[in-house]
């Protein structure tokens, strides 16, 4: 099922281009990795997909619905979109604002009006999934960079979104924590979630992502390859290793 559709998307920052004529189809349940050099437009694309930014020109459709600036101006529709699309920011510092990790994870489910027992169950499950049980009562502000990444993912998972957007989620994590997160992402994908992850480290993601969308420095898509196709292109792989 086609879930996300982008047609000729352009996004301009003052004085610079963010994305240039980008067209893309992403189906439900895919595990897509966005790769490219710094400043090539990966984070900008994630912001557009999440509804935080509207493209300057071009069309963006989510599940058949056109996501325009007018659509996003309506608070209720925006909230419905955010319930279906979750995002973990590159700088997770900005994502944590509650007084404890448990409160942070419970923030979303509490707004949904779920029963206390259900919220508690979700908090416990998310802590376990991200291996944050021992952080439960800690203050998010005092956590290390890697711990903040895991708590940010847990807080997004608690909303049970259909699409997970992750901006460099493995940065700052130990090798063990990276492997654990990749395993979790694979399991989430197996359960039907769509995963779209930005990364510039091919070695980290080559075994898990099914599709690689490679950006070039002119903010365009250079290649859109399935993992099997990419494995047959050693030159391209070597190029990705040097990103």
């Amino acid at each position: 099922m086609l879930l996300l559709k982008l047609v000729n998307i352009c996004y301009d920052y003052p004085n610079t281009c963010g994305l240039d004529q980008l067209s893309l189809d992403i189906h439900a349940g895919e595990f897509v990795c966005l790769m490219g050099p710094n400043g090539s437009g990966k984070s900008t694309l994630l912001r557009i997909l999440s509804g935080l930014a509207s493209p300057t020109t071009g069309d963006y459709q989510f599940d058949g619905q056109a996501i325009t600036a007018t659509y996003l101006a309506d608070a209720q529709r925006r909230q419905q979109l955010h319930q279906r699309i979750g995002m973990v920011f590159q700088n997770t510092d900005v994502q944590l604002f509650n007084t404890s990790v448990a409160e942070e994870i419970a923030f979303g489910p509490r707004q949904l009006g779920l029963a206390s027992a259900v919220i508690e169950q979700r908090v416990t499950d998310c802590l376990e999934l991200t291996d944050c049980q021992d952080l439960r009562d800690r203050i998010p502000y005092q956590l290390s960079g890697g711990e903040k990444k895991r708590v940010a993912l847990a807080s997004v998972l608690a909303l049970n979104p259909e699409v997970l957007l992750l901006d460099e989620p493995l940065n700052g994590l130990t090798i063990a924590a990276q492997q654990q997160m990749l395993t979790l992402l694979q399991r989430l994908q197996a359960s039907g979630k769509t995963i779209i992850m930005a990364s510039h480290n091919y070695q980290q993601v080559q075994a898990v992502a099914e599709r690689f969308i490679i950006f070039n420095s002119t903010h365009q898509i250079d290649a859109d390859l399935a993992r099997a196709d990419l494995n047959q292109q050693p030159d391209r792989q070597a190029q990705l290793m040097t990103l």
Partner: peptide, 10 residues
């Protein structure tokens, strides 16, 4: 922005 993404209800 992060808050908005997790604001799924009033």
């Amino acid at each position: 922005e992060a808050l908005e993404l997790r604001t799924v209800a009033p």
